[in-house]
Write a protein that binds this DNA or RNA. Sequence first.
DNA 1: CTGAAAGCGCTTACAG
DNA 2: CTGAAAGCGCTTACAG
Lengths: 330, 330
Amino acid sequence: MSNATIYDVAGKAEVSLATVSRVLNNPEKVNEATRAKVLKVIKELGYRPNAIARGLASHKTTTVGIMLSDVTRASTSSLLGGIIDIAKKYSYSIKIFSMSGDRDVLDSIREVVAEQVDGILFLNDELDSKQLNIVKEQASNANIPLVLTNVISDDPELASVAIDYKKASYDTTKELIAQGRKALFLLSTVTRYSVNSQKEAGYEEAMKEAGLESKVFRTSGDLSINTPHFEEYFGSHPVDGAIAVRDSIAVSFMNVMINKGKKVPEDVAVIGYQNTKYAMLARPKLTCIDTPVYDIGAVAMRLLTKLMKGEAVDTIKIVLPHKIIKRESM
Amino acid sequence: MSNATIYDVAGKAEVSLATVSRVLNNPEKVNEATRAKVLKVIKELGYRPNAIARGLASHKTTTVGIMLSDVTRASTSSLLGGIIDIAKKYSYSIKIFSMSGDRDVLDSIREVVAEQVDGILFLNDELDSKQLNIVKEQASNANIPLVLTNVISDDPELASVAIDYKKASYDTTKELIAQGRKALFLLSTVTRYSVNSQKEAGYEEAMKEAGLESKVFRTSGDLSINTPHFEEYFGSHPVDGAIAVRDSIAVSFMNVMINKGKKVPEDVAVIGYQNTKYAMLARPKLTCIDTPVYDIGAVAMRLLTKLMKGEAVDTIKIVLPHKIIKRESM
DNA sequence: CTGAAAGCGCTTACAG
DNA sequence: CTGAAAGCGCTTACAG
């Protein structure tokens, strides 16, 4: 019924519980013979140390807290994929904390701290720098390492891993301009994401350099909302190229253009962000900026393990490479 | 620096720690005046009880373990969306346990048990009934409620919530047959998922009743693999209708058909499962069987809360309704 | 190399 | 209604 405890193991192996604890945590410190004896009993009893008790006694839970806003976003689940794989490799458990928009940031981070996680991966890119600061302070007060994962902050004290979204947009916009296109749009979201604001900044810089007018079009990520929105607006506004902050938005826009009788990419070029399945399934196939989201998650988790163990790290700000995948829409 | 403990609160409020504990857990049992005094100090100190210590003392962690195989699957992340929202509502924390294919099932479930979760949501539908039994036994030995979430099992003792995938496939196949189509395929995965086997069973039953030959085509969920696979096989095999176990597979198949010069749905009807964004973004828009995955997650989590609290439940096997969303591909 | 003992920060009967 | 004390299942100095 109830599971074996360390007392059961100690009793059956005829050693003290300290010894059992040692074979689990510092096996090299115990005599090989007694170690074998204890290991045998552990196996027989199917004993696994109670993680909660261990956490209380050692002040280490070997679990990391993941703070996010929406699991169903394609980028979030890819990020999680990378995080989970690396966490498993380093034997960390994962606890998910979702921050609903209305909830207080301070309350959210305090909850995570109260759960005694050993480290925090912060994936919520909907916060401004003031709110990010609250998170930073609470984490550092509690002495818990924190890594921003695919979240942008210029605070040099905040560890982070992401790609250079600004440069990605800048370069891509430049290419579009070089093709002679002028009515270029950046299709962004109504919700302000720190990551998307970087994409916008790069676009705006390139447009400005070319003496062109920046046009950031904000809409919903929801197809049933953005489709009519595109249909209406672009009925009267010229456009010959667009970069969307997500593949799905790019495809939605592309479909609207095609329905209006435009040719892609001849009349209008369309580029998406992330390189999801949407891009491959679209017709024409979507050209997009490949953001290695899985890798960002994995690298962030790896960085966090180092921070938690107090290992030296080269840098606290990691920028992963991105590339443009040219397909048929540009 | 380090956070306030219950001792700090008790000291500053000039009461015993038992009293502080009570205002947190059984506020009605403490005098209003002292309760107010304690609450005030709690607020001042920003005190939050250490969840680990509480877990050890109370034998309740208010966390549920989610066992899954792959977060990046669209169905998994929607399931998680529903789970997270309901868990939050009932103040449960969520811990993710990923089961890599090669890992021992027994080891996986023991790990979850050792983490002292109060309940388990099992989302991994890649296991056979023997393996499912191991999970069931370990959970019940440890007295931890378990709910299969979008996983099929005919064991009447296993709580589960899903839709009737068999009927969904059966009905849809019937409709296709009623249109006079005969060369009907079920596009499934190489990996055996319990959910997909139900989809196959319903299809096969309908085909058998109509005296038609069942043709289950197994391929990868990876586009770069299934696309050439479809191209080759359907170059020489006739097909006038197909139901795919996932939207993305349906769209991939549809694209191959269109590239071969077929008309959808005139020459070949295509139907997907789940009703994801892929379906809406496809051209023509994909007709599909809507599986309310978010709801399945939410309902499973709700059922689990009842089980954890020992509340009475009407049934331990919940079947949610599904429907066919008719768009352009059938 | 091994054991006895204190302690992690709470909860929960048990008294009063 | 409130407090003193035991206990949850471990880890970790400290002795020996």
